[in-house]
Design a protein around this nucleic acid. Structure first.
Lengths: 231, 231
DNA sequence: GTTTCCATGTCGGTG
DNA sequence: CACCGACGTGGAAAC
């Protein structure tokens, strides 16, 4: 990993064309050749970058560029597309390299999968008398998150999202349309379950006869695993 | 901007729980307090991070931690949520700070907007006898990218995407449903135009009587502005 | 390998 | 501030 702090300008050409005027920035060159250009703000997204696989070449600045104060010219070329990044360094304030080794990688704990497991476990959240049939019920157009039966024994398809958006309603609608073609299953009703349901999604769902259920993650999880807190 | 290279472990707790085992990484602390943890590979996304607004505090390691080799403990707390990042530094290999100033920011040139402009300009791409009515035709549920008339004078709604996905077809379907409620416009047909159209999207579109058109960006743009190339 | 869907998405526009 | 859609989306899992 090479870290350079430099006054530089950057040009990108590929899926779009972009330019960064002359300013002081942090340049990160990773072991795989990828390059990141960071400013001192924003979030984790760099101002500009080149994703691996790619190769960086330091080329001689032209006379014109040299006359304008350019000391180094980096050209980064993507290996599989014609994406290119060109960095003109005017003043190098810091330049160091470090051997970081291979990272063991991130260990994550659930999001939507956990919500699904929790709702499957506490299927009564949908109402008294509901029973779980299956999680991840496979269909030709994708898996239905949860299939259950309501107190009358009718089939219910549940779509789970962290944030309930209009897309999720469309997705559930396609599942319902498909499932209702099966005379063994029909009539299948739909439940749209999410931590938060956007008004537009709720309106669309209701209009299509789909019930909306707001999931309370903490309530589902219960207070039993407070020990997992960090501090 | 502070740049630290250190052997460290990281814990995140917030929307999910995540852990990074002890390894050497680059830590970036930006002027707004945000923190990025980068490995020497992957793409521009850090292994872990805290987005602004947030505050970092260096706290004393506990005796246990100190016994395990922890030299510094950083606690980063998000200002508006209860997201927390905890970084235990075991060995600091580099630590430097730099004043980068405010970045003038990125200057971008089109993507979808450019495709839209180009298709509006070359509306005959849809076929002989097509005429442009309007770009960004406003409706209560959002703007229709392009409204045109086909050779018979019938109205055509065009949805443009760089990547033609199922979402785009759904979006266009909603527009068509709305537009066709207007007796002055009906019948309105649909065209789904994208640089690349996914098979499922194409199937869904065709099933709904929506025509699919693949856009060739370079062909639309023509060879006239080859001068805009970088190298 | 391709396709599909999730994301601690992030980011910018608009009401 | 919230909602909504685009993104050089990136990334992982399913097929």
């Amino acid at each position: 990993m090479r870290v350079v702090i430099a006054r530089c300008s950057v040009d990108y050409m590929g899926r779009l064309t972009a330019h960064l005027p002359l300013a002081t920035r942090l340049l990160m060159v990773k072991a795989d050749g990828s390059v990141l250009v960071h400013s001192d703000g924003g979030s984790y997204k760099p101002l500009n970058w080149m994703a691996p696989p790619c190769a960086m070449a330091e080329v001689e600045p032209t006379d014109d560029e040299r006359a304008e104060g350019v000391r180094q010219c980096w050209q980064v070329q993507h290996a599989k597309s014609d994406d290119r990044l060109r960095i003109l360094l005017h003043e190098v304030l810091h330049d160091s390299s470090h051997d970081l080794g291979i990272d063991p990688g991130l260990v994550k704990d659930g999001v939507e999968a956990q919500l699904q497991a929790l709702l499957a476990e506490h299927i009564h959240t949908l109402g008294e008398g509901y029973t779980l049939v299956r999680r991840e019920y496979q269909t030709p157009i994708g898996p239905v998150d949860i299939v259950a039966k309501d107190p009358t024994g009718a089939t219910v398809a549940v779509e789970i999202k962290r944030r309930g958006d209009i897309d999720g309603v469309e997705q559930l609608t396609r599942y319902l349309e498909l499932l209702n073609r099966d005379p063994h299953l029909a009539p299948v009703s739909g439940v749209f379950a999410a931590q938060q349901i956007k008004p537009q999604a709720r309106t669309l769902a209701t209009d299509r006869g789909i019930r909306c259920v707001t999931l309370d993650y903490d309530e589902l999880r219960g207070i039993d695993d407070a020990t997992t807190r960090l501090f």
